[in-house]
Design a protein around this nucleic acid. Structure first.
Lengths: 222, 222, 222, 222
DNA sequence: CATGAATGAGTCTTCATTCAT
DNA sequence: TATGAATGAAGACTCATTCAT
């Protein structure tokens, strides 16, 4: 929120970032349409016209927010995957947990709600988000599941669709925080929610111990 | 959508329903704010002022849509539950499938997206939807899971939170249809999605095989 | 307010009067513009279209209200004047008091406020009211004052303008009741107000006892 | 009304005042409801949205007009009272005349009509006007009368109600100008009207001649 | 005569964007 | 670069009046 800096030259360079930070906070809170350009400006400590010095319009601000804040999170997940060597279960848990930590617990968690809400009215935004975020995210989780299946940790599953089922509870968790969650008497305990998600998913994906044939018990976990 | 009828008297009785149908279609497509009253009117085959004869304002139209269309679906689910006698697995599958059929495959599937999107800007609407729909829905699924757990079909789970995890993929499926889903190259195969959801959830909930062999009772939860 | 009558034929004949009664009540309460035709209809116990059977439009209803209710009050005053034989003071008090009683204390007291408020936007109404009510009213009070002056009860005054000064407090009293009067902590005590008005006016109009000449003290109140 | 000025910066400082001036003119002419925001804007030489940069809505514009233009007139009257040392008659005349000059002869004279007309439909406005204008005005005139009574210039009177009777003809004069007055064949001669008002009131309030002869003290109030 | 459903022009207010300074 | 005043199109809601029944 625009930490006040003494210098002036220094401030100037920080402007775009401050604007994006302000925009993200407001987008998360109110959505795209309901966020007013002037509010973004005010929150960033500048005046109405200034954001237009750096960004062509509101849509471009949104795209910049996504590019600067959300996409790095995906890259981070891809990085993690490429260096991972443990069990499928551990990988999936790790990925979901860092997703939650890096996105779910920050203002970024407001973006899924936003894009879901406004996709119909801003097709360009939707297309951008779909290509830059969704496809990469789906591919990432897809590889995580494939990793577990190939390792024999997970049942063989319909990966393309399982991905969506795995992602759904995490995304819903984020959406909830920013919409109807506020109606709830006691706020969601996110750790408890995440634990429930992971337990259910892992237990649903894990290779059953095929108990009919006792001998086979030694085979899995190849 | 406003099938042309000879009479005039006959039409008037159908008006409210026609308006609600038009409204639902537009709400599902564009959301609440972006749906213009005049468009609702036009789509219902009437002029600007007519909807106001039947509904006080746009918010009331929304509430009426929910009351007339969505809530009966919940009642239907409650009915089903109260008459069910099979396994927990069968019950859950049954409930999820009829939810999908009655809501997911109709325009009603647009409502979750709408309410998620606009809850922040229309607190009254949010409160109404939360109390009339969410709470009853959560309670219903909660009873389904409890049913399975008590019957020994499901593992003992954290019911309150598991409910949300179970509901998430279904709701996300609906949301998807009405938002980013349209960006997708090949449309979602809903039957395949639903099958994946059910398999994963049932497999995640089901009591690990209770072998006839009592000794094995110590093995699970490895 | 539309007393319920058994018969039907009987009701039919009372319709116009019931409509005018309802209209007057609403006009007095809300003004002309803010009174909705539908509310008039409802209050008269009929439906939207019915008033239009009897009156061409809202303006005609207003005119009819004036003709049926307010003008007879003026005629009554004229009658009183033509039959009066006492002092100018007594006549003025009598006229003001019956004006207050016949108009000020009924719904008719709402009409001055109404016409004052809407004259600018409904010139036809203004002209009608001016010619049918104001001119006759002014003429009446003018004759009252002239009566007193000619009788030597009142000082010789600028009758045309004194009329207005005499009427002002009475009309303001009515206006007050229907507008800012409602803001007042304790409602106006109308009898006390009227008494103050009459005392001040009479005392202001009455021929001073020309005290320079002590002998003249016996002359007045002839 | 919006004299064309070269600069742009210079204009902006004058904007609020220009808008209020335009608003007052229109309020006086048409009333509150019938004055369209767009007309205010046009008359002030700006476009639809501009008034909203300075005032939240039409009601706030009205309040600003009152605060900026009418209330200073009352303060002026209070000032005059506090510095006055002459007779009660002279004071009352002075106050009424400057009231007429400062309000009655300007567009401000349209406000009483407006507030009377719309009090019922805009309770907030009514309350504001009552508290900020009426109460102060009544208090002021009350003090004027008390001043005269205490000085022995005026009869002892029911001050609270006499105030209203004294104010009535002045306010009615203003109201008249902006409503039915326009129907009149020959426009009111305001000086003549004011003179009549003052003569009648002073003559009505003045202590009946206190002859040098002490004995006559018993005679009055016959 | 009466009904009451329907019409549709009219008005306040919002806000992304521009551009003179 | 930055400012911030101004633009003006867009949309919810009202209500007098009409007219098919």
């Amino acid at each position: 929120m625009a930490t006040v800096v003494k210098g002036w030259t220094r401030r100037k360079e920080a402007r775009p970032a401050e604007i994006l930070e302000a925009a993200l906070a407001l987008f998360a809170e109110k959505g795209f349409t309901a966020t007013k350009m002037e509010d973004i400006a005010k929150r960033a400590g500048v005046t109405t016209g200034t954001p237009y010095r750096y960004f062509a319009n509101k849509e471009e601000i949104f795209k910049a927010v996504v590019r600067e804040s959300l996409i790095p999170q995906i890259s981070f997940g891809e990085e993690m995957l490429s260096q991972f060597h443990g069990s499928g279960q551990a990988l999936l848990e790790e990925v979901l947990r860092s997703w939650w930590q890096g996105v779910g617990e920050t203002n970024l968690s407001g973006l899924p709600k936003l894009i879901i809400a406004e996709a119909g009215n801003f097709p360009d935004l939707a297309k951008f988000y779909y290509e830059e975020v969704i496809e990469r995210g789906v591919r990432l989780i897809g590889r995580v599941i494939t990793y577990g299946v190939e390792r024999g940790d997970f049942r063989p599953v319909d990966v393309d669709y399982t991905v969506r089922v795995v992602m759904a509870p995490v995304i819903m968790g984020m959406i909830w925080k920013h919409s109807l969650g506020v109606c709830e008497r006691e706020p969601i305990d996110t750790e408890r929610y995440l634990k429930t998600v992971i337990e259910l998913l892992l237990s649903g994906l894990t290779q059953p111990q095929q108990p009919a044939n006792p001998a086979s018990l030694e085979i899995p976990h190849a």
